[in-house]
């Protein structure tokens, strides 16, 4: 019986099971109770602190900067939502492993970006992890504004994102980046909600082999098949993607 087991382990129960020898003080500390208490305290304390120390440090870095690095939010927005006009990417809700890999790539030059390179180089390894943990913990993109008014460009973008064009061996974005573009950690970043200018810049960089830090060269193999118009269309769509209703 689970209940009797628990009861047998409750403090004081020993008095009933095995009467305490009279020469022992009645209030002697029960070792089992003490152990249970200590374990509980340890569990509670580590749960509350260790699990969140990274994110807390990351939040401070994001909002105040640190160690020579400017605050991430200066460019990436107060909630990590990015800055559409400037083409600074959304970071909130992005996969932790992906964010960390990009910071390391900016620092070691495998991903070239004149703005991010000095910032990434000024971050310690721990700070990179903190920032990645923090932004990965923020909520991902959700559709808050109405989708773009249907246009030929938006429709073309939707088709590329959801179906690709297999007549030229070009898979759909969502075949790897998730059924709604929400990303598939650890390797495939979220695309939904990224500023159009950012996606466009990156696709152009993949196509021109200026960005090459993709696993297996998968992204480069897709981008090289895309036309300027297709890059623009899919970047427009991914900024605020919607899907047509399900078939009945």
């Amino acid at each position: 019986m689970p209940l009797s087991f628990i009861v047998a382990w409750m403090p004081g129960s020993r008095n009933r099971v095995l009467p305490r020898p009279p020469h022992l003080p009645a209030r002697a500390t029960d070792f089992r109770s003490l152990l249970a208490g200590v374990v509980s305290i340890a569990w509670g304390a580590t749960g509350a602190s260790l699990a969140h120390a990274d994110r807390l440090a990351g939040a401070t870095l994001a909002q105040q900067g640190g160690g020579g690095a400017p605050a991430c939010m200066t460019c990436h927005g107060a909630q990590g939502e990015g800055q559409a006009a400037a083409g600074f990417p959304r970071l909130a809700g992005q996969g932790q492993a992906y964010l960390l890999k990009q910071l390391q790539a900016f620092a070691d030059g495998t991903r070239k970006n004149p703005q991010m390179a000095p910032i990434a180089r000024s971050l310690s390894a721990a700070q990179m992890r903190d920032a990645a943990d923090y932004y990965a913990s923020l909520p991902g993109w959700k559709q808050t504004t109405a989708p773009h008014t249907p246009s030929a460009q938006y429709a073309q973008g939707l088709k590329i994102a959801t179906e690709g064009d297999w007549t030229k061996e070009m898979p759909a974005c969502f075949a790897c980046h998730g059924i709604t573009g929400e990303g598939v950690p650890p390797h495939f970043p979220a695309l939904a909600g990224q500023p159009m200018a950012y996606t466009q810049t990156q696709l152009n960089a993949w196509r021109a082999a200026q960005r090459t830090n993709d696993p297996l060269g998968l992204m480069q193999a897709v981008a090289e098949k895309m036309s300027d118009a297709e890059i623009a269309a899919v970047s427009r769509y991914l900024e605020n993607p919607s899907r047509p209703g399900k078939e009945k």
């Binding site: 004081g12 009645a26 500390t29 249970a36 208490g37």
Partner: peptide
């Protein structure tokens, strides 16, 4: 027995921390 057992304090504090941890 009416004995107050010190283990009760430890249990109560520990239990509260577990609940607090889950909420936190």
């Amino acid at each position: 027995t009416r004995t107050f057992h010190p283990g009760w304090i430890v249990m109560a504090v520990g239990g509260a921390l577990v609940v607090a941890g889950i909420i936190a």
